[in-house]
Design a protein around this nucleic acid. Structure first.
Lengths: 206, 206
DNA sequence: AGCTTTGGCTACTACCTATAGCCTAAGCTA
DNA sequence: TAGCTTAGGCTATAGGTAGTAGCCAAAGCT
């Protein structure tokens, strides 16, 4: 029935992924906002207009990459926490896993967290995993408070704002100043492992 | 002698500034990387190629804006500290002045601190004020340690990395999540006034 | 009065995104 | 098996961009 058609659909899905891979390469080479669909088409071996059979616009390519990135990032922070006691230990592991993912996927991370592409706004669908990431860290904070590892104020609006700014700041500085440094050697990423300690210093329990 | 020529030079300088102002408007409207020299020329009332009599390339416009921004930012952080006792008080005032400048000059700040324009690297000349900003904060940290307001470790590589990440993180989060919020109401900028307290908590004196 | 320079201009090249519409071959269906 | 449909190529084209070449008038210098 839809068996042979599946083959066609599978080939199409393969091409879609291939285009996204090429676009990612190009973004890494030319800068996130420097992506050219024509260049991607050339690398794929087709003429530029043919690429529009797969994506209706340049923004649609960005949106697909945004979603792919958000899903991968969510997966990374979840895997980081997996197997750890919920609380500060899981948060530490999760932050580090997320930071490592960002450093290993810089073009994607820039697209996701710094929005350097004029006019591009992610669709709700593409943005959805970001909400799950937020929930993930909220839950870990709550668990840490529950276990008496952090003061309850850490869960406040302020505490969450500071926490997210801490990790965002370290990564932003690392990316703009030493993008090629190994995670352990980076002047800023080296702090990531100590972030839970910083949180405890700022929100000591009890 | 060069007296009448001065008039010509002055007119030219005026036009240069006018172009930069228009470019800044366009960056605010269309995104930093979305600047079009053709659009700037249209607003100025000349044909696009004529604009190349003033700037040799689009990157040259970015470079001039980068330098203008760095100078203004340096001026802002210096004025913030002026009249304060050198040390933590001056640092607090300086951080806040800088943060206010960033929120009031978002397009410029993005160009300066996030480099969203593919292929654009600032010239040494344009970058020079950034080094002065760095020295400014290094001096304030040293003064704070001298006065016994911070532990000497705050001046270490690590301490400086954390300090710059803190302010960078808050601003990065504020810009991407609530760019239009008033400084006092911003979920992230509200923290700026408390940053010196955070530093003291992390690097308690003695 | 005449030379030089500035700052306009048009014309053009070489890219880009995106649309319109053609055509072939793969695949579905009677 | 024959014929219809559609996916996925293509060319041509519109209209945008950055940037170059080269012309020319007027301002300014000597």
């Amino acid at each position: 029935m839809a068996d042979t058609s599946d083959r066609r659909a599978r080939r199409r899905a393969q091409t879609l992924e291939e285009i996204l891979d090429l676009a990612l390469d190009l973004m890494a080479e030319e800068g996130v906002a420097g992506l050219s669909l024509s260049a991607a088409a050339r690398r794929l071996g087709i003429r530029p207009p043919s690429l529009y059979k797969y994506f209706p616009s340049r923004h649609a390519v960005y949106d697909a990459l945004f979603e792919r990135g958000q899903r991968a990032y969510l997966e990374a922070v979840r895997r980081g926490a997996a197997g750890r006691e919920p609380g500060l230990a899981a948060m530490a592991a999760s932050l580090e896993a997320g930071a490592r993912w960002v450093m290993a996927n810089q073009a994607l991370a820039q697209l996701m967290f710094w929005r350097p592409v004029p006019g591009f706004e992610p669709s709700a669908r593409a943005y959805a995993p970001a909400l799950a990431v937020h929930d993930h860290f909220t839950a870990l904070t709550a668990a840490a408070i529950e276990r008496g590892e952090l003061h309850p104020d850490a869960a406040s609006e302020e505490g969450q704002a500071l926490g997210s700014s801490l990790i965002a700041g370290l990564l932003s500085q690392q990316l703009s100043n030493e993008p090629d440094a190994a995670f352990e050697e980076g002047r800023f990423t080296r702090w990531v492992a100590r972030l839970p300690g910083v949180l405890v210093a700022l929100y000591p329990p009890r």
